[in-house]
Structures are given as structure tokens and as C-alpha cells.
Design a protein around this nucleic acid. Structure first.
Lengths: 135, 135
DNA sequence: AGAAATTTGTCCGTATGTATC
DNA sequence: AGATACATACGGACAAATTTC
């Protein structure tokens, strides 16, 4: 296979996959990600592509890397109370469309964090980003 | 030559050199940097190393790159990521009404944080809470 | 303490895809 | 359409930091 990168480049696909594992708790905060060599085997891509994907996660602040040690998921501080997180794809409303410079109804990724205290929501945080964001 | 990178790595040396040219006005704001191929010849390094150096400058907010065009020095200081915050009262939609255990249309305080990067929104965070909440 | 194995960091050369001029 | 320029991807080699034995 030469190097066709139709649509989404591979490093971005891999970055999203790894991000998903972190957000799903499959790779808990502080835990090491698989080594680059391992990821190379798993995704069947060159090491450079794996490093590119990890660099994207690092830029997004999701992971940190140390020289002879490895790359680990960064621990984020949970907001004291219980928080539940959902992520879904939504259509951009008029306001968001302007901000992101996209068309109304275009796809956006919404991440919703609900902070509850004794059943009732205390705070609801909705974060929007572009689907093809480097993250 | 194999790969001796004693002391400072080459891509960093090159990044510093280019930064110097920008700060000295040799490459004025808005002007294009030499093409990657040109820099490859000038510094006698591979294109990957040049790209690494330019990526460092980009992360620092000193330059911007456009696909088939080139890399140019940015006009002003790194607006790296500028956040603006607005706060307003909104009516609860169906989802929020359930979460907060209030009626649809009841008042909620919405705080919107827009993280921009060179004009376009990179991330939009909307936080909802009850009007009579502290903070 | 020291050697080996593991893992990330740097660099090269090449090939091909894609956007702009 | 052609030339130019950046983007993605491969594979190989060696350096440097860390961990393990």
C-alpha cells in the first residue's frame, strides 16, 4: 500500500481512537499508553505515523510523554461531586455555525458533563468542537 | 552522516535561526518563509527536519502555514488561543429542564466560553447553572 | 554497580497525495 | 495543464533516557 490518505489521514484516525480509549476509562489517568512499537503492530502503520498521532494528543493536553519511559494519560481533576460524561454528534445551531464558520446543521461533537448533587444537576457543561479536530 | 545530535538537536537550531530572522525583521510580518525545499538545501538537512523546525515555530505562534501556499510570519504577537466569556440568561430546553428538575422555559444562567484560534472558534464551552446558585 | 532490554528522540531518504499558483 | 509547495506515510538507522535483571 503506497500512501493514499483519502478523507481522514491515518494519524488522525489513530489519535481519535486513542482519545476514545482514554475518555472511556480504558486507559485511566496516569496509566501508560501502549509503547510506540506496540501501537505500530496494532494499527499496522509506521512508527512515524504513531508518533504523529501521539503528538496531536499531546498538543491537546490529553497525554504527556517522558523520554525513556513512555506516554501516559494526563490526570484531570474530577469536579468533586459525581460527574457523568456523554458524547454525541449534534447539528450546529445558528450561533455555533457562526463561531465555527460552518453551515447550520453541520455536524459538531458535543461533550456533556453533568455535575449532580443529590440527584439534581448542579452544573451542566457542554463542550463543542469540530468532528475533524486534531484532539 | 549518520545522526549525531550532540547538544541541541538540529531542528531546534534551525527553528532558532528562523526565529531570529523573523525578530530581526529579515522576514517581516506577513512575508513568506523560504520553501521547505529551499531550506533543505540551505541547511543541508532532510525535509523532515525542516518540517520539525517549522512545526515548533507554528506551535509557538510565530508562523502560520497554508497548504499549497507556504509558511509566513504572523502579523502580530501570538494570539495563541484567546478566550472570550459571555454570560446571559436563557430558557431551559427539554434536556436541561429534566436535569435541573425545573420546567421547560424556566430561566438558567448560561456562561459561554469561546476559545478562538486565528479568528475561528476552536472550542465552545457552555456551562449552565441555576440562577440562584452561588459563584 | 553494571549490563541488557525497552522506549522515546532525532535524522535520513524516498514516494505519493493534495492544494495552490 | 504544468509547476510549485505543503501533507502524509514508509522504512531504516542511531542516540539518549529509563527500567529491568
Amino acid at each position: 500500500m503506497p500512501t493514499p490518505h483519502y478523507g481522514q489521514p491515518r494519524y488522525r484516525t489513530i489519535a481519535n481512537e486513542l482519545r476514545q480509549r482514554i475518555e472511556d476509562g480504558e486507559i485511566p489517568p496516569g496509566a501508560l499508553l501502549p509503547a510506540e512499537s506496540t501501537l505500530t503492530s496494532e494499527f499496522r502503520v509506521s512508527r512515524g505515523t504513531i508518533r504523529h498521532a501521539i503528538a496531536a494528543l499531546r498538543d491537546a493536553g490529553l497525554v504527556a510523554t517522558e523520554h525513556g519511559r513512555g506516554t501516559y494519560a494526563v490526570a484531570f481533576v474530577p469536579p468533586a461531586s459525581q460527574a457523568e460524561t456523554k458524547e454525541r454528534e449534534v447539528a450546529a445551531d445558528a450561533d455555533l455555525a457562526i463561531l465555527f464558520k460552518i453551515e447550520v446543521g453541520a455536524a459538531l461533537i458535543e461533550r456533556e458533563v453533568i455535575v449532580r448533587r443529590s440527584g439534581r444537576a448542579q452544573e451542566v457543561v457542554r463542550t463543542y468542537r469540530l468532528p475533524d479536530c486534531a484532539l
